[in-house]
Nucleic acid binder design. Structure first.
Length: 114
DNA sequence: GCTGTGACTCCTT
DNA sequence: AAAGGAGCCACAG
């Protein structure tokens, strides 16, 4: 039997597995890696990763919002990267429009591609 | 080794 | 709808 990859490697692999133009939540990534409840670890790992191929910008909080402080440098960076691959970002959150604030927009489902 | 701090999430008020 | 609190865990001081 192959030795099970260490948890950190599985999490990073799960992040890399998010297709271009799609997004996933921290908790969702953790679950996919077989580590439910480790959302914070996912965030910590992404912060520590220096791999330029890591699509860290596709990982959002469970409510679809960007996890960085609003208007911060990283916050802008993430929003820009998402838009660059076709993901609609409004006020720091993906266009998932679960109703809320004048939401007359149609629900373009970008959430939970699985 | 204990405390505070997060790129978190969920449940209860 | 918004706020509080508990659970979570790695890391820095």
């Amino acid at each position: 039997m192959p030795t099970p990859p260490d948890p950190a490697a599985r999490i990073l692999a799960a992040v890399r597995a998010i297709p271009r133009g799609e997004v996933a939540g921290y908790g969702e990534v953790a679950r996919r890696a077989g580590l439910p409840g480790r959302a914070r670890w996912v965030a910590r790992l992404l912060a520590a990763s220096d791999d330029p191929r890591m699509p860290w910008h596709r990982v959002l909080r469970s409510d679809g919002r960007i996890a960085f402080p609003p208007e911060s440098e990283a916050w802008r960076e993430q929003a820009a990267r998402l838009r660059a691959e076709g993901v609609e970002v409004v006020e720091g959150r993906v266009h998932v429009a679960r109703a809320q604030r004048g939401a007359d927009a149609l629900d373009a489902e970008v959430w939970g591609p699985d």
